[in-house]
Design a binder for these strands. Structure first.
Lengths: 372, 372
DNA sequence: TGCCACTATGTAATCGATTACATCAGAACT
DNA sequence: AGTTCTGATGTAATCGATTACATAGTGGCA
């Protein structure tokens, strides 16, 4: 443990060697009790200015940092928040995570990430983890509660801690939902495409049980209707938000004899994969087919052609979710649902359909990088 | 999870209500002492098969999960690992993180992420966090120790826990380094470009103090030398690995009167941004200028044209770093340095220079998506 | 002056697991 | 048979902070 020598004083008062500084050490140095030290930290107004000063002085000299395990054991708080997401390696989440982290950090909370990766064991693990009180709250990006399917089947595991749903709403759960209006956004994009003259607008979907997908699909149908266009099931191509599924969708399109003039992909990844496939097959984008995406990830602006898409305020989504959770953790009230604004980002991958426009194949690039 | 029988009794003997199950509850139910329960969990071979069976049965029935704070307080272990990285929203890190998380999860460790974001306060916070024993170990992706600059200046903060450097080596630190051979990889790519006939190969750098950058730059110079090409400082264009800096580099190139025939970008992000700018300016890639990247992020394969690059085994890098750290945490020896293999991924953004090849502008696409 | 209210502080119980040490039964060895 | 060893288990100390409760001191007010 310690070197007990003659001139021991391994740390006259500082930290340099050996064992960590305990609250006892600080108390002794400040000539107060441990209770006073604890109070000076937690509620400074409850100790006299003199004692407070001595305590802070002692803390500074020793470099004392409270032992979180001890604190947590007694106070039943961990100052940790769990962020549950389906796939950490998905670009879409990284900016959101950053927004979350920023806000949590400001509020003094740490962030534990759980990448479920579709694994039930992992999910069970983190459910237990949560139930074990290892975190004070959680932000769920995976569209369902622990122990429940996306459809709200099954009994949600009792967590006993505040939860917030982010991006993928969990309608069956009575927790705050932070999201965008997916339906309105999809509607808007669809109407935009129609307004350019497209009469045959394909839709590349997300995974079937996904609530984002359901909303966006509704929006797409509404958009068609509002534009006086019929809904054609043959124009719905299955996808799952990944680049690979975009590539597949593109291959599907390429082989069709009657092709739509525009494709609305419900993620930028799919749009980029799809575009790539179309271009490889010798089709022109947007000359032969216009392609629109969803999310506005970093690469959308530098895709070739630059991708027309729906911008989600990703960082802000993360920040908002974190703020709401912190409010809950600290006993403040919070709204049940927050919708953040999206924005149509018009770039070069969408143009009026060829047969309506007599212009040559060379697309009219409206901007080099960021039009908005 | 399961449908419990007709008589619900969600937890006949589990947490009767409200409060969490304690080791005491399990012990009572299994008719053993708490010590035996603890041992059954930590070292099953030290308890008799019968007792062990009763304990596990009781655990299953109660849904007991050890209180981590209590465990941590006593055993001085947190089963948490800190991952320090400079920018969470960078695509490059996400797959690495996933690799780390996978391996840590298998070994029973949780992952706390700290996104330093270039903020000294954040860094100080996490240094204290670490010093406070809140994690058992850390994986550093930011190229320097706490309290130290990238150049090894300053006294590294005493953490007292195992550390591992990942991707960005920390030469001054005596900790395991997991990385790729950046120099060899850059050398190889440079020689590859030269072997196609390129005599004027530009280099878009990373940030100046970055050790990756230094290594890659050396590799570039060595590659030139090995190919009998002179090094021309005018062909070195500053960058910082971001898309935006790639765009800037592209703008620089576009305005030059004498342009290189090939550009080696030290990140895919820059390569994609740069390509975009060249294309927008009416240049052809690889017709007029070949562009190569580094990293092989997901988007490289679907960029237009598909990007020739150096593949880093990102997931494996993460897994390896996590494995090494877990070894250290569990007292096993570990190698000081691990170099993982990279791979040259040949796609469509690189071709022989125009003046050497009489073929038309239409580039010969060797593959649609993934040639390798 | 005597009593109350209030503030500042100290004492010690407490959180829930791990683990050093003690105990005991039975096997193995002399 | 007596001694030692081994393996299985229980008892209770321990980790370091928080906090309920107790106590001392101070000022106000009748």
């Amino acid at each position: 443990m310690d070197e007990s020598g003659p001139s021991v004083r391994p740390e006259e008062d500082g930290a340099p060697s050996g064992r960590a500084v305990r609250i006892q050490d600080v108390a002794r140095l400040a000539d107060v009790s441990t209770a006073t030290v604890s109070r000076a930290l937690a509620s400074p107004e409850r100790v006299s200015p003199e004692a407070r000063a001595r305590v802070f002085e002692a803390i500074a000299r020793t470099g004392y940092v409270p032992n979180p395990a001890a604190r947590s054991l007694r106070s039943q708080k961990t100052y940790m928040v769990l962020v549950v997401l389906p796939d950490l390696s998905n670009t879409f989440f990284s900016k959101i995570l950053r927004g979350i982290e920023e806000r949590l950090f400001e509020a003094g909370y740490g962030m534990i990430i759980s990448d479920l990766d579709g694994s039930p064991e992992k999910e069970a693990h983190f459910a237990a983890f949560t139930a074990a009180g290892r975190v004070d709250g959680a932000i769920l990006l995976n569209g369902h509660l622990f122990g429940q399917s996306r459809d709200g089947e099954g009994t949600p595991a009792k967590t006993g801690i505040p939860l917030v749903a982010l991006c993928e709403a969990i309608p069956s759960a009575d927790i705050p939902q932070i999201e965008i209006d997916n339906r309105a956004a999809a509607n808007r994009m669809t109407q935009y495409l129609a307004s350019l003259g497209h009469r045959s607008i394909a839709y590349v979907s997300g995974p079937p049980n996904n609530i984002l997908e359901r909303e966006r699909f509704l929006g797409y149908q509404e958009g068609l209707k509002a534009s006086g266009l019929p809904f054609d099931p043959a124009l719905v191509i299955p996808g799952d938000y990944t680049i690979a599924s975009g590539v597949m969708a593109g291959q599907d399109l390429v082989t069709r004899s009657r092709r739509p003039t525009a494709v609305f992909c419900t993620s930028d990844e799919m749009a980029i994969g799809l575009t790539r496939t179309l271009l490889s097959a010798g089709l022109r984008v947007p000359g032969d087919i216009s392609v629109a995406g969803f999310d506005d990830i970093e690469f959308a602006a530098v895709a070739e052609p630059a991708l027309t898409t729906v911008r989600q305020p990703r960082r802000e989504l993360g920040q908002t979710a974190a703020s709401v959770l912190v409010d809950l953790l600290q006993g403040r009230p919070s709204p049940k649902r927050i919708l953040l604004e999206t924005e149509l980002v018009l770039r070069d991958s969408v143009a009026p359909p060829q047969n309506m426009e007599k212009a040559p194949a060379k697309s009219t690039r409206t901007s080099a990088i960021k039009p908005t």
